[in-house]
């Protein structure tokens, strides 16, 4: 009865079909992204740009799997995702995001060779945070459902925030050294990671600090932003021109 009186709780209780539709759509998006990645990969020649494509694509696809696991979890009303599968996807997201940023640093080094050593130190700082986050997540997966799991999530937060901050710092520094398509890809890919990754993270924190379940509804607008970003990224893996101009 309480839930019905609270409009937010009411909206949240009606959101199940939305999660269900998203859960059905995400596998289609993943298949589309894989096909598009393979096609674009075949036309690229430069190893750096191939690495950039694969890592961004993997970040994107692993984000989709992460979201899918959470939607299925929400749909089945699970407090924890079994076997910490979401954590394993998160590790893949972190690693591929690192490789993507590394490829952006390599591209920036080509256009700004004078500051090459600065880019190398940025890469090292990001690598240290990556190792910390992935280790904590990996170990946490062994304690899913155990009271100690929450402490790992908190510990992970200590690495996650500086990891994101370092990525933003690096991208801000290299942004003007990149081509238009790389800039566009950076913007939309990291919007995907933030909208889905952060909403998943907030979900977990809300669970830990016992906030009302309906506050998880924050993930619905985040999903819309994420889906629009997916559309933008998948459409622009490489700068193309439509055939009518050929």
């Amino acid at each position: 009865m309480d839930n019905i009186q609270n409009p937010f709780a009411l909206i949240y209780s009606l959101s199940a079909p939305f999660y269900f539709i998203l859960a059905l759509v995400i596998p289609i998006i993943i298949v589309y992204a894989v096909i598009k990645t393979i096609r674009v990969y075949s036309v690229l020649a430069s190893p750096i740009y191939k690495k950039r494509l694969l890592s961004l694509s993997l970040t994107f696809i692993a984000s989709m799997f992460y979201v899918e696991s959470h939607f299925i979890g929400a749909f089945l009303d699970l407090l924890y995702i079994p076997y910490g599968i979401d954590n394993l996807f998160a590790i893949v997201i972190f690693m591929s995001a690192y490789v993507a940023v590394e490829s952006f640093l390599s591209i920036a080094r080509r256009y700004d060779p004078i500051n090459s050593s600065r880019y190398v130190s940025m890469k090292r700082a990001l690598m240290s945070l990556l190792v910390f986050c992935c280790t904590v997540l990996g170990v946490a997966s062994l304690f899913v459902g155990h009271p100690v799991y929450d402490s790992f999530v908190m510990l992970f937060g200590l690495g996650f925030v500086p990891f994101l901050a370092t990525i933003f710092y690096i991208l801000w520094k290299v942004y003007n050294k990149l081509d238009y398509n790389s800039k566009r890809q950076i913007f939309w890919t990291f919007l995907i990671v933030i909208s889905f990754g952060l909403s998943g993270f907030v979900d977990t924190i809300f669970d830990i600090v016992n906030f009302p379940v309906y506050l998880n509804m924050v993930s619905i607008p985040a999903s819309f932003i994420g889906l629009y970003s997916i559309y933008k990224v998948a459409g622009h893996f490489v700068e193309t021109e439509k055939e009518r101009s050929a």
């Binding site: 096909i35 096609r39 674009v40 036309v43 490489v238 021109e241 439509k242 055939e243 101009s245 050929a246």
Partner: peptide, 13 residues
């Protein structure tokens, strides 16, 4: 040199 896209076909030209 550019990548030209038509439907599902992506070609470097």
């Amino acid at each position: 040199m550019k990548v030209v896209e038509k439907d599902w076909d992506i070609q470097p030209m």
